[in-house]
Simulated assay, not measured.
Amino acid sequence: MKMDVEKWLGYLSRFLNIIRPKAYNVIARIVVGAGAAVVLSQTKIVEALIVAAVEFYFGRSDVLREFLNQESSLGWGFGIIALGLVYHLSMTVGVDLVSERLQRLPKYPVLALGVRNADSEEYGGKKIQMRGALCQVPDAAGIPDHVKVISVPRERGGLDLFGGSFTTNFLASSLNSDFYRDRSEYFRTWGGAELLRFTITNDSPILAKNVSVCFVVSKAAGVAMDNTNDDFPTIPSAKKDGMRFLPPVTAVEKYDIKRGHTGQEYIFSWDVGDVQAGTVLESKTLIFLRAERDIEIRTTIYCDDFPEPVNDTYEVKAPTSDRSQISVADLKVEDTEFTKMLDDVVMDGYLRRRAEQEFNKYQHEAQEYLPK
C-alpha cells in the first residue's frame, strides 16, 4: 500500500508540473474573470472579449467559440469560476502538498536489527543481559568414571547362545564412563551462556536489496562464541550411542550466519538477501555466547540501497547471579535433580521450557489427522 501511494504521488507530481506553465496565475485570473463576466452579463460583447483574451495567449479555439455561442446562464458562469479556482489551488497548494509529501517519503530503506534470547524475547535498547549463572566445576582428574553393576536375568532352562558373561560385558560397555565428566563440562559450558537470535526489519515502503549483517566481538579471556543451528543443547546421557560401532556419518550443515574468526576477533556474517517493505526476517542460525565479563558486539548493516553501511553497538552484561559451585556429588544426582539444577544456571529454565514445547508439539502431531 505504501509503495502504491509513493507511485501515484509521483504520477500526480509530474502531471501537475506538466499543466503548470509559468503564466498559471494569469490563466487562473482569466478563467475566473470570464466566469464572473458570464454571471454579470448576458451580452455577446463579454463573450467576444473572453474569446479575444484566451486566443491571445493560446491561439484560436473553436471549442471555446462554440461553447460561448450557446445560451449563457448563471450556472455556466459559476462553473467557469469554480474551474478557475480549482486550477489555481491545484497549481499552488496542490503542488506544494504533493512535493512536501514526496520529500517526507524515505529515500532509502529503513532497516532495524533485532536481538532476541533463546526464548525469542526481544532485548530492550542496545543492552543484552545474560541469564543464568556461571559455574565452577571440579577438576576432571577428581571426577570418577561412571560405572554401574548390571545383572542379566536368565530364565531357568533358557539358552544363552553367547553366555551370560558376554551379555553382561556388552551391556556394561554401553555405559558412558565419562558421564559425570560430561555433566561437569555441560555445567561449565552452558552455565550463564545464551543463544542469541537475530531479526532484520524493513520499516520503510522501499524494497531493501542485498542486505547483509556483520557481527564482531573482540576475543578475551572468559569469552566464547560460535554459530549453531541447534536451539536445544543435548543433555549428557548415561549411555553411549548404540550405533558407535558404525562409521560416523558427517552431514554438511548449512548456516545462514557464517563465521570467519581471526586471531583477535570473533566475526560472524549473516547474508539476509532482499527484504520486502514492512517485513521481518529471522535468522535460522543462532549464536552461542558465553561471557564472564562485559563485552560489546559491534554490528554493521550493509544494503545495496544505502549510501553507506549502518554501524551500531550492543552492550553485553555478564550474568549477575553468583557463580554456582558444582561438586562431584552434584554430578551424581538423578536426572530429575540434575534438570532442576540446570534450571538455576542455564538461561533461567530454558531447557525445561523447550522440552515442554517439543512434548506439546509431539502430542499435537500425534492427534493431527491429515489427508495422505
Rank of each mutant, 00 (worst) to 15 (best):
M3Y: 02
D4W: 08
E6L: 14
K7G: 08
K7T: 10
L9N: 01
R14Q: 14
K22A: 13
K22E: 10
K22N: 11
V32Q: 11
S41E: 03
Q42F: 01
K44R: 15
K44W: 07
A48Q: 12
I50D: 03
V54K: 03
E55G: 05
E55T: 03
F56I: 03
Y57G: 02
F58L: 09
S61F: 00
R65S: 07
S72Y: 03
S73L: 10
L83W: 12
H88I: 02
M91S: 12
V93I: 15
L105S: 03
Y108M: 01
P109Q: 02
N117R: 00
S120T: 04
K127C: 05
D139F: 02
R154S: 14
L159N: 13
N169Y: 09
N169I: 00
Y180E: 08
L195E: 07
L196K: 02
I200Q: 00
N202C: 03
N202Y: 00
N227T: 14
T228K: 03
D231G: 05
F232M: 13
P233L: 05
P248A: 11
T250P: 10
K254F: 01
R259C: 07
F268A: 06
W270H: 08
V272N: 06
A277T: 04
A277V: 00
K284M: 04
I287W: 02
D294K: 11
I297K: 09
R298E: 09
I301Q: 00
Y302H: 01
E308C: 07
V310Q: 06
D312H: 04
D312L: 08
S321F: 04
Q325Y: 05
S327F: 11
D330P: 10
D335I: 13
F338M: 12
K340N: 15
M341N: 11
D348T: 07
R352A: 12
N360K: 14
K361T: 13
Q363D: 11
E365C: 07
K372Y: 14
